[in-house]
Design a protein around this nucleic acid. Structure first.
Lengths: 229, 229
DNA sequence: TACTAAATAATAGTAATACTATCTTAAGCT
DNA sequence: AGCTTAAGATAGTATTACTATTATTTAGTA
């Protein structure tokens, strides 16, 4: 029996053959992410990826029906990965304040590579998802419930539950979760590539991001003790 | 002299010939937005657009060098359009509280068509930008400063200035502006297409969105009088 | 050892895409 | 009438996004 690698479960509709189960599949993911990061979704082709990994494009088509599905897959993988990190960290942080700090840590540390998943570079994966993931949100209704929203929804619920565990009366846990998540990704992207779009840049950018996210979280945590008026 | 239509200025690098200056150009924008909404960026081609407006694709290539640039153009147009609305409404609202309410109104009403711009349907435009705009954020450094970030940056500054006019000590006006803007778009999209991802849905979704955005804004406005601890 | 099944490699082929080029016609101005 | 510019008409090309077929390798098993 071979060493069991850490795998992240992804909905069945997002692949034809599970790429995490074979060497070729893992190479497709690993190198595919690199190539997507380099070329962007438009420039990326299975042909180029095939050349890169020394396999014909037809082999890749056996794993994913097209490159759209491929991007959906790695996006789902990414959300699953973040949820995994949140679940892990929550296992060791039971106190209310502790949980908030832990959540903030995960959010500020997205986009840092983790050696636990050897076949994919999370830093690149995060970059790709940040810049490309919107391309993947289903357009037509057929794709809508079937596809890649599932792992995103599950992630939002995890974060929402943390928020509720601090303040059970807060009315918008899901909305706040997606806002936090988007804001974290957006600000990280801006801080590295579009510095004129944010104050969170330079040496202290991570610290400031954490502070900023805490500000966003604040009203949800203060149990309506504090009013603007 | 013909009637002057309302036009929104867009950076020169985002087109070859200014499409707002000719009938054909305006048709390209108007119908192009409809087609993009219908087909998504991948399915959209100048050929199909040409067929739709009864012109050869070569004519469209005289306005935009490729469809990527076209999407950049309409995204910039959209940001410019929102900034215009914000500037308009601020002209008539000078008080601090009033300004906040006005800003919230604009943010909750994005995605509503405005008859002031006859050649483009803002509702569709908003939808297209929501779902496609990330495809357009420049990947390489060459595009970065030249392109479509400009109108976005200008918009962020406008919103940031409002925030600062309420609370000059707030440290992250730009970051909060982009977060508000993204959150508004994201939640509107979820409330119509992915209702399992948000609480802001159903009959009262606009009202709730406004409330939610106000919650996000709150800490910025309370002049640090109110602490979590 | 041979037999079978599955995954992959190797190769070919096709309709559509994303352009570029050129040439003609029409519209507007002086 | 002559000039300029925008637009129409048409053609062509390399690449893309696939599909199909056949051959080869690999692994399990009778």
């Amino acid at each position: 029996m071979p060493v069991q690698l850490l795998t992240i479960k992804v909905s069945k509709g997002l692949y034809l053959r599970d790429p995490q189960e074979s060497e070729l599949g893992r190479r497709i993911i690993g190198e595919g992410v690199k190539l997507l990061d380099k070329l962007g979704f438009e420039g990326f082709t299975f042909k180029k990826l095939g050349t890169r990994i020394g396999s014909p494009e037809a082999s890749i088509y056996r794993y994913f029906k097209n490159k759209r599905q491929f991007l959906q897959y790695i996006t789902a993988l990414y959300w699953g990965w973040i949820k995994f990190r949140i679940d892990m960290i929550l296992r060791f942080h039971k106190g209310r304040k502790e949980r908030i700090e832990a959540l903030l840590s995960v959010l500020t540390e997205i986009g840092t590579d983790d050696p636990a998943t050897p076949f994919v570079d999370e830093k690149l994966l995060c970059r790709v998802v940040m810049s490309q993931s919107k391309k993947v949100f289903p357009i037509n209704k057929a794709e809508q419930e079937g596809g890649c929203t599932k792992e995103y929804r599950v992630l939002l619920r995890s974060i929402g539950d943390i928020i509720l565990s601090i303040n059970p009366k807060f009315k918008f846990p899901l909305a706040l979760s997606s806002t936090l998540l988007s804001a974290a990704h957006e600000q990280i992207q801006y801080s590295t590539h579009f510095t004129s779009l944010t104050e969170l840049k330079g040496r202290n950018s991570k610290k400031m991001l954490r502070e900023f996210l805490k500000v966003l979280l604040a009203p949800a945590l203060t149990q309506a003790k504090c009013h603007t008026k």
